[in-house]
Design a protein around this nucleic acid. Sequence first.
DNA 1: CTGTTAGCGCTTTCAC
DNA 2: GTGAAAGCGCTAACAG
Lengths: 224, 224
Amino acid sequence: MKDFHPHRPTLEDVARLAGVSLGSASRALSVPDRVKPKTLALVKGAVEQLGYVSNGAARALASKKTRTIGAIYPTMYNPAFVQSLDTLQRTLWDFNYQVVLASHEYKPEREYDVVKAVVERGVDGVVLVGTAHEDRVFDLMRQRDIPLVLTWENDEPRYGECIRFDNRRATYLMTKEVLKRRHERIATICGYLEHNKRARERLDGIADAMREAGLELDLDDRPP
Amino acid sequence: MKDFHPHRPTLEDVARLAGVSLGSASRALSVPDRVKPKTLALVKGAVEQLGYVSNGAARALASKKTRTIGAIYPTMYNPAFVQSLDTLQRTLWDFNYQVVLASHEYKPEREYDVVKAVVERGVDGVVLVGTAHEDRVFDLMRQRDIPLVLTWENDEPRYGECIRFDNRRATYLMTKEVLKRRHERIATICGYLEHNKRARERLDGIADAMREAGLELDLDDRPP
DNA sequence: CTGTTAGCGCTTTCAC
DNA sequence: GTGAAAGCGCTAACAG
């Protein structure tokens, strides 16, 4: 257990204790292979002895990299989003990135505020989940030149990359599986199709696969 | 839509455009009531025109406050944790704080790494969720003097505040409700009691309420 | 109320 | 390889 330090040790303290320069101490920690093994050992020893923990704000300011990305969700009460968040967080962790989380309860105006706050706080990129985004969200990201990834989004992205679901291909592949088992009379429960592009795409996928097999999906044969 | 800026505008740019000093610009943004209305207007105008967004890293470095807290969970696949996270995030948002999220899959060793990473990145405090923590986690927090809140924790905290469940009081209150409805023969399904302090506490709460009502909980009357 | 100035702790040239 | 020094963009005294 370490003693109480009135002044949280800085890299300068480490350098002094190790008997090397500030620059060397910095290098020892971020590019260890560019310092002599002896220097490295000295610095590591000092770090250990002081219980040194680097200051992310200073590092971010100097390097212009925060190593954090913002994740913005409509809500956390959708298990699919939770899984997405968890995966994101774990994946980024492996890349030595951290996640700042925010949600906006499906309110586009709040989404802008949230994005802005996250950007001000400092992120190297943001992941936007959900479907309806205001233009100014994209404007902000574009103007600041911040990488943006959208997902669970229907429209063409106005800025940034977009990860989508290919509903048509998904049902196409499912149907192929069914057909592979030599079924020929296939029923599908698809819900309402009006105003539901995704549902229609799924149906299209099924029809595609059936057509390929010389079968036909009878779209009219459904209850009211 | 803003034009492309080769150099993201800084507060200095804002100050220059507004025709005020750096200090005044800073104040206008953080303590608006301490500048002349005219100055405020000038600065706000410049901010708007430039599309200025403050730099969190610089602010954090200068003010020694990150306005973010770290939330560390065992997993995200427990709905109770998700709700806790969501509430935490929303509450902190109202206080103008942000949340950096991390999870460690119930592995105490990983928990330390996670806490350390979050602390290095810079947080004003951390919320630790879960039951088994290594000593060095507490040592780290204590040595850096970082506020810590534990929850879903059984033991006495070795450092920081702890928010617990009062199982005994919970069932006590529940039982009072039942008694209020004039029931006198009360059954309880409580699962195994051995090695389960929480279960025993819950039973105690029931017994407490019944005793108060002059009733007795027959602990032996249960299937094997 | 405002301008000036000195850092915050670290990374990063730049010479050596 | 290493040290010296110049910032990164902002806040917080400090005088005026």
